[in-house]
Amino acid sequence: MTYSLEIDHLTKTYPNSNFRLDNVSFSIPRGTIMGFVGENGAGKTTTMNAVLNTIKKDSGTVKLFGREMDDKDTDIREQIGVVFDAANFPEVLTPLKLSKVMASIYKKWDQPFFVETVERFKLDMGKKIKQYSRGMKMKLALAVALSHRPQLLILDEATSGLDPIVRDEILGVFLEFVEDENHSILMSSHITSDLEKIADYITFIHQGKILLTEKKDALIYDYGIARCKAEQFQIIDREDMLAYKKRDYQIDVLVEDRKAFERKYGGVVVDMGSIDEIMLLLIKGEQ
C-alpha cells in the first residue's frame, strides 16, 4: 500500500506546558479519507501543524507522499490544501482579488476551476470577505484549497458551525475529491456523523497520544458496546474488553468483535456503537 501521509513517532513538547504530542503514529493510505477525532486540546491541530511543518517537532518523522518535508520543499507544500477552523483571509479582499494573490503564490493555481467552484458554492466574486457568513468563508477557504490542485487536503474542523445543508454539500465535494485515487484527506471534526458518512479510517487522539486507528466500517459494524449487569461483568475476560465504564445500573464494555462476544457470552446485549460512543468509552472508560 502506498501512503499520502506517514506520521511516525512524532513528539512535540512545549516549555512551561504539560501538553505534549507523545509518539504520535498513523498513516493515510492513498485515495482514502482519515477522520481525526478527540477532545478539544487533544493535539489534533498540533499534529496537523507538525505535518505542515509550521511548528518544529522534537522528534519523529513525517512523510508526505513518501518524502520528508523540510523548509525548502515548496513543491510538496503545493501538493497540500489546507482549511483551518478560522478562515484567515484578509477581510477587505474580494474572492476575485484573493484569487490573484493565490495565483502568484501557487504555481499550479487553476483560475478557471476556482471561478467554477466559487460559482458552484454560490459565492459572490465581487463581495468583500468581511461581509461573508461563516459558511461562506468556509466554502471560500475550501475553494482556495482545492484550486491549487493538491493531492492531500488537511481540514481542521472544516464543517463545524455549518448547517446540515452546507455540510452535506461540502461532504459531496470531499467525496468528489477522492474520486481521483491519488487524492487523500485528513480531516478533524467533532461532527462525527459526518465522519461516519465519508471517512474510510478513524484515528482517536487523547492527551497527545493516539488511542486507536481503525477502519470506520470495522468500528461501526464489528466493534460493539456490551451493556452488562454487575454479575455479567464479573465473568468477562479482561482480554475481551477494550475499555469499560460503570454507570448507575449497568456497565458499558467496549468490545472489538461484537458477534464473537455475543457467542461467547450469551444473554449479554451488545449494541453497535457510534463513533461518539466509542470515543467516550476509549477516553472516559477504564482499560
Binding site: D168, K197, I198
Partner: peptide, 17 residues
C-alpha cells in the same frame, strides 16, 4: 467504486468491500 461512493455519499472503502 469511487463514483458510486460519491453518488451515494458513503466512504470508498465501504463500496470497495
Amino acid at each position: 467504486m469511487r463514483s458510486l461512493a460519491k453518488s451515494i455519499h458513503v466512504s470508498v472503502i465501504t463500496v470497495q468491500k
